[in-house]
Design a protein around this nucleic acid. Structure first.
Length: 571
DNA sequence: GCCGTTTTCGGCCCGACTGTTTTCAGTCG
């Protein structure tokens, strides 16, 4: 079965190849925009095709692309892609990843000098054959060589929590500059994506040059890639790229909106502006030369008759239509969270005791937490067998007697065995307030068996929540193969909740799966999987992810009061 | 290649920076 991601990848590859071939840029854009649409869908294209639904109803997909998708689904390959791959040497795509080298220059280098690989490029640059070409000079040649040599050490996307450290540090540095009135980190950081490609920092100040000079002095900067009056790009020692933009106060809202993106969202809204005879850029909304809005984001949205849309939703995944119809979700906020339903103690692989975790939960302002240590199968983590679990339950009962207006719920993170059975007998699971189940082994089962495994686990009436349902690690591993639609529908049928694991390295479910779960009516638990007291604060990342999945307070299990929670857990 | 409350043809979001150029193409976000 063809996954959405595979279809999107095929279209993106084809777009890259067509671009190098010098195809019409709008045709290239059409492939990219279709890929983006497909990636953001919360339904499987394959399922749509099975149900014979019309793909041309999707944004940016017309008859031709619908046919191509059908071919891809039916045969597993795309003739147009295979043909383009025949015509363009495979090394050329890699060359476009070099900073300052785009499709046009790569094509010229190939046509004129036969350069089709990184090595050939470096050699040509060293032999000064590139600067001999028209349109290329000494500086370009030198830059190409530098960037080609940097290519291997360039970081990919940076995890949000790591980006946050750099962003906060630089934000504080810039705030110390004279004449700076405001500093905001925009881009995918503000949209709270799980990873960021670079940081976009917006500065309100009158004198751009002074800000740029100040930025360049920050100790974490490795080099300044470019620097103008309103824009500078720097590379940090960590490998992260940062773009700093300086705008005047009257353009702050327009610039914030503009640099928050996503690009797909911005393009869609700017089209709406064009249809109204308006132009939106980072300085404001304009009718001719007259600025109609720009000071605030709300005013910019108002010019195209939209309410303010939360950054987390700005992915062009239906938020604009929802806004037009007055159907935007009232997104959950961190204050809505009343407890944390996944954490470990020193009984297994946690770093803090039961009492310390309870105290940490109280300090977080919660009404309850659940202690969910590992089960026996996870020997590496000193997992609990029935006897040790019962000892812990007794200890929790004792602790609860001393606590006021705070409850420690009795739970476990029980392993799901290969056949979908659970790692502890039903009689001990029956003594718990709730049962969290998850997969920690045999990630390599095929899609059907892995899906069945989760469904069988959910068949057990004691199971309340499936933790980190896909097993993926951000920037680490993809997670096991699953038919998410079946998992989500299975959870809905059985009244089982799915988790958003708030560990920044997990964020599992991911945003589109969260939305899929919401649409199926599955209740979500946002939980930190804390292994130390300091990690309870990771809840914020989980709430971010929930917002990206359009969740409202009522969609989330642990916004409930304790009484409501117990009721919701009944299956 | 997509799309239509100006359009079924002729548009398609918008601007900063750089280098190689004497007016702009290429790249990037």
């Amino acid at each position: 079965m063809m996954q959405n991601a595979e279809i999107a990848r095929a279209f993106n590859q084809l777009a890259d190849l067509l671009e190098i071939q010098g195809a019409n840029t709008f045709r290239v854009r059409a492939y990219r925009s279709a890929a983006q649409t497909i990636e953001g869908l919360s339904v499987a294209i394959a399922d749509m095709l099975e149900r014979e639904e019309d793909l041309t109803t999707l944004d940016g997909i017309g008859k031709d692309l619908a046919d191509k998708i059908a071919t891809l689904h039916r045969t597993g390959s795309l003739p147009a892609l295979a043909e383009a791959q025949q015509q363009v040497p495979p090394g050329l795509i890699e060359l476009t990843r070099i900073d300052s080298l785009g499709p046009k220059r790569v094509k010229t280098l190939y046509d004129e000098l036969g350069i089709d690989s990184l090595d050939a490029l470096k050699q040509a640059a060293r032999e000064q054959r590139i600067s001999a070409l028209s349109g290329f000079g000494d500086k370009t040649e030198k830059k190409i060589l530098e960037e080609a040599e940097r290519l291997n050490q360039q970081a990919g996307r940076t995890r949000l929590d790591e980006a946050q450290q750099a962003a906060e540090g630089l934000r504080q540095h810039i705030e110390q500059c004279d004449g700076v009135e405001q500093v905001v980190v925009a881009g995918s950081y503000r949209r709270r994506r799980e990873t960021v490609g670079d940081l976009d920092i917006l500065v309100v100040a009158e004198e751009g040059r002074r800000v740029m000079a100040h930025v360049a002095e920050w100790e974490e900067i490795e080099r300044v890639a470019l620097s103008g009056d309103t824009k500078t790009t720097v590379h940090l020692k960590s490998g992260l790229q940062v773009d700093v933009r300086v705008v005047p106060e009257e353009s702050f809202g327009a610039a914030l909106y503009y640099f928050t993106g996503s690009q797909a969202h911005n393009v869609a809204v700017r089209k709406m502006a064009v249809a109204r005879g308006l132009k939106i850029n980072e300085y404001g909304v304009f009718k001719g030369d007259r600025q109609l809005a720009g000071h605030t984001e709300e005013a910019v949205f108002a010019q195209v008759e939209l309410p303010w849309i939360a950054p987390e939703l700005r992915e062009n995944r239906g938020e604009i239509e929802a806004a037009q119809r007055g159907k935007l979700p009232q997104l959950i906020t961190p204050d809505d969270i009343r407890g944390d339903l996944h954490m470990h103690t020193t009984a297994t692989d946690g770093k803090a005791s039961l009492e310390e975790m309870a105290e940490a939960g109280r300090r977080q302002g919660y009404n309850y937490i659940a202690i969910t240590d590992h089960s026996q199968r996870l020997a590496m983590a000193n997992g609990l067998d029935a006897r040790r679990l019962r000892e812990q339950l007794t200890a929790i009962d004792k602790l609860n007697e001393q606590l006021k207006r705070f409850t420690v719920l009795k739970s476990i993170e029980v392993d799901i065995l290969e056949d979908g059975q659970l790692d502890l007998p039903d009689d001990v699971l029956a003594e718990l307030d709730l049962c969290v189940a998850s997969i920690h082994s045999r990630f390599n089962l095929d899609r059907d068996r892995q899906t069945e495994r989760l469904l069988r686990a959910m068949d057990n009436p004691h199971v309340s929540i499936i933790a980190h349902p896909t097993g993926r690690i951000v920037n680490g591993r993809d997670g096991y193969e699953l038919d998410m639609q079946r998992v989500v529908d299975g959870a809905a049928d059985r009244g089982v909740c799915l988790e958003i694991n708030a560990q920044p390295a997990r964020l599992d479910l991911r945003d589109i799966h969260v939305r899929m779960a919401k649409e199926a009516g599955v209740l979500i638990s946002i939980a930190t999987d804390s292994h130390a007291t300091g990690q309870l604060a990771h809840m914020a990342f989980g709430v971010d992810q929930a917002r990206r999945g359009w969740l409202e307070k009522d969609d989330v299990l642990n916004t409930r009061t304790l009484t409501q929670l117990r009721k919701a857990l009944k299956r």
